[in-house]
Simulated assay, not measured.
Amino acid sequence: MYAVSIGEFAKTKKSEANKPYRCVKRTTYTTDDPSRIAEDAITILRDTGVGMRFSGMEDFGSAHGFWNDDHECPDEGSSEECERLELEACREWIEGRVRQLGTGESEALHLSLDSGFTEFIVTGK
């Protein structure tokens, strides 16, 4: 069983605020399905825009050929096929990492945006 917490944070508008970000939305749920968790994480990336990746996953762009039989992307820009393959590689990594979580262990994914950030935290129960 896994507990999932998804927080969306926005920059505060007042410079004198105690904290630079405020939570604008928090979604929590429990599940025993690592595939669902991975797909929910990838949905966040898809909804945010092409090329968006959680911190630490930027290399999935240049290395996705390793996971996809040496598929090569065009030098300029990203094709729909490349984006799909990169997101699939990210989904597989997230699902595999969730399956490895022991009781009380967590995996925290962060997505930085101009307006704030999203955190996606999975904890093994």
Rank of each mutant, 00 (worst) to 15 (best):
L85V: 13
K13I: 08
G61L: 14
C90E: 00
T30P: 00
A63K: 12
T30C: 08
E105T: 11
C82T: 14
E76A: 15
L109H: 08
S115F: 08
E95Q: 09
K11W: 00
R84N: 10
A63I: 10
T103I: 14
G56K: 02
G102E: 15
A17P: 01
R91N: 07
T43S: 11
M57S: 06
F120V: 04
T12I: 01
M1R: 01
E95K: 08
F9A: 02
E92R: 14
D114Y: 11
V24E: 04
I42C: 03
N18M: 06
R46N: 05
G56I: 04
Y29M: 07
D40K: 05
G116H: 07
A17I: 00
I37A: 01
T123D: 01
E72A: 15
A108K: 15
L101V: 14
V122G: 04
K19D: 00
V24D: 03
T48F: 03
T12W: 00
L111Q: 12
G104M: 12
K125Q: 11
Y21G: 02
E86T: 13
W67F: 12
G49R: 06
E72L: 15
D114S: 13
R91H: 07
E80P: 08
A10D: 03
A3R: 09
I44L: 09
V98Y: 02
D114R: 13
A41F: 00
G102P: 12
R84K: 14
Q100E: 15
R26A: 08
G116N: 03
P34R: 01
T103Q: 14
V24N: 03
H110F: 15
G51E: 02
T31C: 02
V98S: 06
R84E: 12
E80L: 11
G49Q: 03
K19L: 03
